[in-house]
Design a protein around this nucleic acid. Structure first.
Lengths: 223, 223
DNA sequence: CCCTAACTAGACTGGCGTGTCAGTCTAGCT
DNA sequence: AGCTAGACTGACACGCCAGTCTAGTTAGGG
C-alpha cells in the first residue's frame, strides 16, 4: 500500500540524487533519472510534480540534516571540544552522503528564478544568524576581532571548499585529522606572523598560483 | 576597419558579460544578449561562433587578470606587507569587475561536459601549485602546520565566499578594511583559544546556524 | 550613381527534453 | 468469472531556443 508507495518514492529519490550528483542539475535529464530508477517516464510524474520538485525535496532533506547537526556553544563549558565536535559533525553529515554533498556544494543555484530567490533569501538569513553569533562571541571574548560578516563568510566558504574538494576527489580522508586541521585554522590561522628565519629548506622553490575561480597567494607571471 | 570590428566585438562581449552576470548562463538567452548589445541576432554570429564560445572567452579573459595579479612571495623580505598587497590585488581584480566576479564565483560550471572537464582540470592544477607553495612555506617556517591541501582549500574557499557575498550584496565595501580582516584571519585565525572569561555581554543570546549550502558553527535544534 | 560590405529585422527549422494522457496490467474483491 | 482501483507504461504533443537564412537598409568609396 502506502508502504509500497513510500518505498517506490524513496527509490526514485535515491537514484535521482545519484544522477544529479554525477551530472549536475541541468545535465540530468528525466530520462536519466527514470532509467536509473528503473521505472517508466510516466511513473516519475506520479510521484513528483516536476524535475524541480524532486530536486527541491532532495535539497530540503539534506538541509534538515545540516541544521540538525548544529549545536549551540555553551559558554560555561570549555569551548574547544565543543567546536571540535561541531566541525566533526558537519564533516560527518557531508561525507556520509557524498552525492548530496556534491549537489549542495556546487549546484543548488542557477536553475530557476524563484528557486534561486528563495535559496538566496534563506542563505542571507543564515548568514545573518552566524554573523550575530560571531559578534556575540566577540563581546564574550571567544571570537577574535574583525568584521563579523567577513569572518562568517570566510569560515563558511573555507569549510565548503574543503568539503567540496574532498567529495570531488572521492579519496577517503581521515576525518579526525581534517577536523583538527580546520580547528587549527580557526584557532590560529595559517600564516606565521614573525617568521624569525626558522627551517629554510631547498632555497630554490616555486610558489604557486590559485585554484578554480579566485585564488590566493604566491607565484605567477607579473609583479 | 579592424578597429571598428574590435570595438564592436568588445561591445558585444561587455554586454554579454552583464547579461550572464544578471541571469546566469542558462537563463541568459541569445536574444537577451543581442538586445542588450543593440545588435541584430545575425551580427552576434558574425563575431562569435556560438553561445559557449563567448562565455568561454569572458571566463578566459578574467582568469588572465587573476593570474596576472599573483606575485611570488619574496622570502628575503618581510612577508606581511607582501601578503597584504596580494590580498588587496585580488580584491581589486574582483571588485573592479563585479559582473565577471559574479560569473566566476557562482556560474562557470554545469553548462557543458567538456567545458566543465577543462575547468576542473585547470582548477586541480592550480590547487596543486598552491598546495606545494604552502608546503614549501611550512618548511621555511612561514606557514603554520596542517595538511597543505586543507589549508589551501580553506584559504581559497574563504576568499571566494567573502568576494561572492560582497559582489552579491552590491554594497560598496572598504577594501582596505576587508584586506586587513582577511589578513587577520590568515595570521591569527578566528577563535580565541583561551577565553579566560573576558567581556561577557547580554548573557541570554542566541548563537546561529549557517549560510547557503554548508555552514558552520553555533546554534540550532539538536544535540 | 552604383557597388560592396557590414549590418538589421525577424522568419524559420531542427533538435531536444519536459510533461501528458489514453491505454495496459495486476491484485484483490464479490 | 467478472469487476474495480489504481499503479504503471511509453508514444507523442508541445514549447523553447540556438543557430541559420533571406530580404532589405545604410554608408562609404570609386
Amino acid at each position: 500500500m502506502s508502504a509500497d508507495r513510500e518505498a517506490r518514492r524513496r527509490q526514485i529519490l535515491d537514484r535521482a540524487r545519484d544522477v544529479f550528483a554525477r551530472r549536475g542539475y541541468h545535465q540530468a535529464k528525466i530520462d536519466d533519472i527514470v532509467a536509473a530508477a528503473g521505472v517508466a517516464r510516466g511513473t516519475f510524474y506520479l510521484y513528483f510534480h516536476d524535475k524541480r520538485a524532486i530536486f527541491e525535496e532532495l535539497v530540503q532533506r539534506f538541509w534538515q540534516k545540516i541544521v540538525m547537526s548544529m549545536a549551540r556553544i555553551d559558554v560555561e563549558r570549555p569551548v574547544e571540544p565543543q567546536v571540535l565536535a561541531q566541525v566533526r559533525r558537519i564533516l560527518d553529515v557531508f561525507l556520509d552522503d557524498p552525492a548530496m554533498a556534491k549537489i549542495m556544494l556546487s549546484d543548488a543555484a542557477g536553475l530557476d528564478v524563484e528557486f534561486d530567490r528563495r535559496l538566496l533569501a534563506f542563505a542571507a538569513d543564515s548568514a545573518k544568524l552566524l554573523e550575530d553569533a560571531l559578534h556575540d562571541g566577540q563581546l564574550r571574548g571567544l571570537v577574535k576581532e574583525g568584521t563579523p560578516s567577513v569572518l562568517g563568510f570566510f569560515l563558511v566558504g573555507g569549510v565548503k571548499e574543503v568539503l567540496l574538494q574532498i567529495v570531488r576527489s572521492a579519496i577517503p580522508v581521515d576525518r579526525e585529522a581534517t577536523t583538527r586541521d580546520i580547528y587549527a585554522i580557526l584557532a590560529r590561522g595559517i600564516l606565521v606572523e614573525n617568521p624569525k628565519a626558522k627551517a629554510r629548506a631547498k632555497p630554490t622553490r616555486e610558489a604557486a598560483p590559485p585554484a578554480p575561480a579566485p585564488a590566493k597567494k604566491k607565484r605567477a607571471t607579473r609583479s
